[in-house]
Design a protein around this nucleic acid. Sequence first.
DNA 1: TTAGGTGCAAACGGTTTGCAATCGA
DNA 2: TCGATTGCAAACCGTTTGCACCTAA
Lengths: 162, 162
Amino acid sequence: MPDGDAAPQQLFDRFHRWLRERHLPITRQRDMVARAVFAGGEHLSVVGIQRRLREQGLRVGTATVYRSLDVLLESGLVRANDFGEGFKRFEALLSPGQHGHLICSRCGRVTEFSTERFERLLPMVADEQGFQHQTHRVEIRGLCRVCREADAGAVQHAGTIF
Amino acid sequence: MPDGDAAPQQLFDRFHRWLRERHLPITRQRDMVARAVFAGGEHLSVVGIQRRLREQGLRVGTATVYRSLDVLLESGLVRANDFGEGFKRFEALLSPGQHGHLICSRCGRVTEFSTERFERLLPMVADEQGFQHQTHRVEIRGLCRVCREADAGAVQHAGTIF
DNA sequence: TTAGGTGCAAACGGTTTGCAATCGA
DNA sequence: TCGATTGCAAACCGTTTGCACCTAA
């Protein structure tokens, strides 16, 4: 959550460098999509990106948003997430040291947590299986505090008895 | 991998019990879909399930496969996975103690690994954020041995230099 | 008997693609 | 200039839904 506002700029610079390195044109559209995703607010969908841009009076075609995101994903500066809503959400990868997601299975709320404690273990696990670790994803589904409390008085849900 | 063949039967029994408990009818179609998924072979897609059934001379409508999978998911005996192919793959959850997935970012091959070492930590992490842990998903993306070796002689991929 | 399930085909909705016009380097 | 990108609209394709018919209990 605490993104001063230096981080987005740094990501933006890295993105430009990445594009220049492979002689890909830096376009107005790519910049706009990158800025929208880097600006935080976290977990934007394609529609959300377009909405955010529109609010600033900017317009980018849907296909272009997707194509820009492809580039951003390839650069490793952005990560795609599927929280089971039927579409993807994108987030800036500020640091190589990543974070995991806690997803409420009732209301869908998403919270982040540090995966510091796993960071050493995961490449090791990969290695044991002959894989060379690149990235990982750690996701926990459960009930958030609000939904748990809301459940307190409710009928017991024919509970999971295994 | 080592599914003698007792496990599928056990899952099947649990599924029946689960249906009976909530007075849901046990139908030919639900049985067929359940068997296909429980039979191992791992990570079947909806089309794959239908193919497998057709090979046995069985036919189930697509909508019914989806609806049966909904029930299986809800029972907690089956898990859905998105390996980034644009559709979902389903797998039996033999034991509550789960496994993670190693996905080759080049060829897409999926391997499993035990998440035993994480099992204690994850509920703890959830708790720290006010969540009540239900399930989790641990996923590692990287290069499998084959793709790594195939890469050895190839052009260096304008590498990630961050 | 009847609540619930099934199959078909049509609808959905997120994502991709073909193509002519346009732009960055 | 020239190869790459953009925008539009159509195509895609996995998944969901409406509805008439059927079936487990």
